[in-house]
Simulated scan of single mutants.
Amino acid sequence: MADQIRVLVVDDQELVRGGFALILDAQPDITVVGEAADGVEAVEATAALAPDVVLMDVRMPRLDGIAATARICAASDAKVLVLTTFDLDEYVYDALRAGASGFLLKDMRRDELVNAVRVVATGEALLAPSVTRRLIADVVARSAPVGPPPGAGRLATLTVRESEMLRAVARGLSNAEIAAEFHVTEHTVKTHVSNVLSKLNLRDRVQAVVLAYESGLVVPRSGE
């Protein structure tokens, strides 16, 4: 990633789009390289402008944010941060499956938006706060298919410690929290997590969380 985090802002409402762009562009380490009003424009702009992060709305004309996310993640290294609301829970899981690196609620604070862009730009997934874990768990539970859990066979390639790390990541723990729990260094945690992502051919920690729930490695608990 370059010194400046290059961001593309995608939203079909001009005032909303402009507001996000204004907040982000005011940061010394963030540059808004473009805006798009729908999914088609987002895909085209990503190809033309090569942003590090795409801030993506869900409900848009021509091509929605989920479909646009899938196309962008398949064709580029851009990280997609999806904007959603609590009444659109079903879209969150779809967005993560499409390759999004995280999601934000539209009523977030200004500092939360800026921090989220920075986190995602570094290659990390945005899994906090805890409501995110519950939301993913609930949606995965509702979407669970009949028959053997998908992805279960892939987990056989992991060592015992790597499986433990995957469970910890799925619980939404940060590297520092995992290090404290297992009494190891953060560098060791990063190495294990990197090995997990590589062995399972996963894009980032969000995809690791989805796979952990889908495979049954982590079981959603009511009231978690």
Rank of each mutant, 00 (worst) to 15 (best):
V9D: 11
V32M: 03
D89R: 15
R97E: 12
P51K: 13
G151M: 06
Q13T: 14
R6T: 01
R167K: 14
R154E: 11
R154Y: 00
R203T: 10
A95R: 11
V117G: 00
Y93G: 08
L113C: 01
A212T: 15
I66R: 10
R205P: 02
E214V: 06
R97C: 14
R221A: 09
L55A: 02
T46P: 03
A116F: 02
V10P: 06
S194W: 12
T85R: 13
L49C: 06
V196H: 12
V32A: 02
H192P: 00
A170Y: 04
E44T: 15
R203L: 07
G216D: 09
H192Y: 14
R161A: 10
L211I: 13
D138L: 07
D94M: 14
V58L: 13
S101I: 03
I178P: 03
A208V: 09
L211Y: 07
A179N: 15
F86W: 14
A180Y: 09
E181T: 15
R167M: 09
L173K: 14
R171M: 09
T84S: 14
L24W: 07
E35R: 15
R71I: 11
D107A: 11
F103A: 13
R71G: 03
S222L: 13
I72E: 04
L126Y: 04
A70Q: 13
A98H: 01
R118C: 00
N175R: 15
S163Q: 12
V58T: 08
V119C: 01
P220A: 09
R203G: 05
L202H: 10
A179Y: 15
F86A: 06
V7K: 04
L24E: 05
S76M: 05
G223F: 14
P150V: 02
V219A: 10
V146Y: 00
V131F: 00
R118E: 01
L104P: 09
T69S: 08
R154D: 09
K106I: 01
E214H: 08
Q27S: 07
V120D: 02
F86E: 09
C73H: 01
V131Y: 00
I136F: 00
V189Q: 11
T185M: 04
V53I: 10
V82P: 06
T159M: 02
S198Q: 14
V54F: 02
G102I: 13
T122P: 00
G19K: 12
E162N: 08
P148C: 00
V131K: 08
A100V: 13
L217F: 08
V184D: 05
R110W: 00
V169K: 12
D25P: 10
T46I: 03
V16F: 06
V58G: 03
Y213S: 10
L217G: 11
R142C: 00
A137F: 02
G223D: 12
Q207G: 11
E112L: 05
I23E: 02
E112G: 04
A70E: 13
G216C: 12
L105E: 04
V210W: 05
V218E: 11
L202W: 09
L49K: 15
R110A: 07
E44K: 13
L173Y: 15
L105R: 05
I136T: 02
R167W: 05
R221M: 11
T85C: 13
V16L: 13
D111M: 02
D89Y: 12
L166D: 06
V16N: 09
V139K: 04
G39W: 05
I72K: 06
A75C: 03
D89M: 15
T188P: 03
D87F: 04
D11G: 05
L55N: 03
